[in-house]
Amino acid sequence: MSIVEKIDVVTKLSKADFASDQEVRWCPGCGDYAILAGIQKVLPELNTPKENFVFVSGIGCSSRLPYYLSTYGFHTLHGRAPTVATGIKLANPELSVWVITGDGDALSIGANHLLHLLRRNINVNILLINNRIYGLTKGQYSPTSEQGKVTKSSPLGSISGPVDPVSFALNAGATFVARAIDKDAKGLQKILKQAAEHQGASFVEIYQNCHVFNDGAFEAATARDTKDDATVQLVDGEPLVFGSKDKKAIVLDGLEAKVVSVNTESLPDNALVHTTGSDNEAYDALLSSFQHKGLPLPVGVFRQLRKPTYEQGMIEQQQSSIASQGQGNIEALLTGGSYWFHE
């Protein structure tokens, strides 16, 4: 049965249809609950039969997520979820394949695999749940922890600086890159839906508060009184404006971005207007470095480009081989090259 034929069944699904019979075992108050709920809310809206969803994860707190969904799921090895997801998608391109991963899983042990999945543009949705700490091993610094982070494994502060997940994905050539926050349920759901509908590799970094080992890591971006000044919402075709009381815009001054106060009726000429469809790496680099330069944290879709997917290429090569050489059979295979008769 093709996806189209199944659609009438699909439309009847609801959030509850995606809850599994497993007891959820994250710490009470963990940001992962909100992310799970967001996924369960979005899946019924995707016009995809439930049995066509496959959630693949690595190892870590967030990687337990597939057990709590009633879809097909595969809890694989630390860092290796992108490889397994690749195999699943190439084996059956009709499936809607999702990778659930964390900052350690995706950017420490599994960074190489993540890079290659993104550059190949395999139509898989990757949700990187970033809490900037190793939770499951009880609190060591992760590759996204800020430099100088004091943890059990770095009592004098971590020596290395962090990798930024969004910059990583943009530089890997991902065709869909976004950032969402666990506490912004609506924003998260909107981005998850866009990611799912994107044809190609979709990468979503989701800030998630680990209140046991790294509480308040994203406080500024989530607290009611600070978030409007600490974040800027990315809207395709709209200027980068933000701020609670005083509206501010981000303008381009030479090669640097700067914040200026504005009134909404007249934006300066050099105000940056966000576009998700540009293939301009300089803009990507600028935008994804805002928060490291005292500028507000961009939240939303950074990039969305239409490019052929890997599996399309694979299928096209198969079809063109069949067209030029005919459908193979055992006789043709075994006599293939050259053979002779021994009389």
């Binding site: 595969f74 694989t76 490889t83 397994v84 690749t86 190439l90 695999h113």
Partner: peptide, 8 residues
């Protein structure tokens, strides 16, 4: 990994 996924 891809083999395990394709097998699944």
């Amino acid at each position: 990994g891809a083999v395990v996924g394709a097998s699944f």
